[in-house]
């Protein structure tokens, strides 16, 4: 609880002592928004960690080898992820539901285990040292980016594009019959989400002195975590995934008292939230409470006279 008390009692001290945590929340927020884009258009794509890896490795490698300015690195990383996004999207976007999820898992693991862990230039399994990282200076960029990203994505969902995505999410065949170019709108969402993920990946790499190719960073574990942000927070509204990212990132602080048993409490919390709020924390409606069969029922009608 000390954590949350210090947030209110000493905001400046809190900011200074938790800069890295705040940066991580911002980055997770951007990635969660990237997940929101694909979910909003009805695609269960788990490709985000792959594009984050592309963003991270491209920007760090450009910096190490060519000493190019940071902005140029990020732009190049994001553009490369966009190209890869189109190339991957063309074959996989014909798939739906868990099939798309599994195909994108194939993509991120083939990229991580097959490419990144085997190229000498990416440092293979040892990872990549990044001496020019700036763990503390990134916060303003990250938070401003997060706000801009949220605003842009919110505007997109309110416009033509958003209506098309909504229609596709609700019923793909009906959307097709209304003259919506389903393949094109799905591709737009997929590529936009790839750009955002790569952007977040490049920013995240800039925070750490070491780019780690592990499973928790760019593998399935990360993909599942990002999916949890979006589904727990609620994927119907732009702010939902951000709320999910905030809560999941802060879980160790929220359940500080659990000590070693933190993951048990966190898992039980996830189950409870999703059972009572299947639509996510941000969304319409109240708690979904269903009366068990043995619960005493209220009398439906007054006893009839006579």
């Amino acid at each position: 609880m000390d954590f949350f008390i210090s947030l209110f009692s000493d905001p400046v001290g809190f900011w200074n002592s938790h800069t890295l945590l705040i940066s991580q929340i911002g980055i997770n927020g951007i990635v969660a928004t990237s997940m929101f884009l694909v979910l909003y258009s009805g695609q269960l794509s788990l490709a985000a960690p792959g594009f984050m890896a592309i963003g991270a490795y491209t920007s760090v490698l450009m910096d190490l080898n060519w000493h190019t300015p940071f902005v140029l690195n990020v732009v190049a990383a994001v553009l490369l992820a966009g190209v890869v996004g189109v190339l991957v999207g063309l074959p996989v976007l014909r798939l739906r539901g868990v099939f798309l999820a599994i195909a994108t898992i194939g993509f991120i693991e083939a990229l991580r285990l097959g490419v990144i862990l085997n190229l000498p230039i990416t440092g293979e399994g040892l990872g990549l040292k990044n001496p020019n990282a700036d763990p503390l200076g990134g916060v303003p960029i990250i938070l401003v980016s997060l706000v801009v990203v949220l605003f842009v994505v919110w505007r997109l969902t309110r416009g033509r594009l958003g209506s098309a995505w909504s229609a596709i999410r609700q019923d793909e065949i009906a959307a097709l019959s209304q003259g919506i170019f389903v393949a094109r709108y799905k591709m737009i969402a997929f590529v936009l989400s790839a750009l955002l993920a790569a952007y977040a990946g490049a920013l995240e790499a800039h925070l750490n002195f070491f780019v780690d190719p592990g499973d928790t960073q760019y593998g399935v574990t990360r993909a599942v975590q990002i999916l949890t942000f979006a589904v727990l927070g609620g994927s119907g509204y732009v702010l939902g995934p951000l709320v999910g990212a905030l809560i999941v990132t802060l879980l160790p602080y929220i359940f500080e008292g659990a000590g070693d048993y933190i993951n048990i409490i966190a898992g039980a919390f996830l189950i409870a939230v999703i059972i009572f709020r299947p639509q996510g924390i941000v969304g319409r409606g109240g708690l979904a409470i269903i009366r068990p069969a043995w619960w005493p029922r209220a009398r439906l009608s007054a006893p009839s006279p006579g």
Partner: peptide, 23 residues
Amino acid sequence: RRQAPAIAALISTIGLALVIVAA
């Protein structure tokens, strides 16, 4: 019972896996 979207079951089973592994 709540007619939740199929994706919700992914999260609840992940939560249970987290609990079992942590235990």
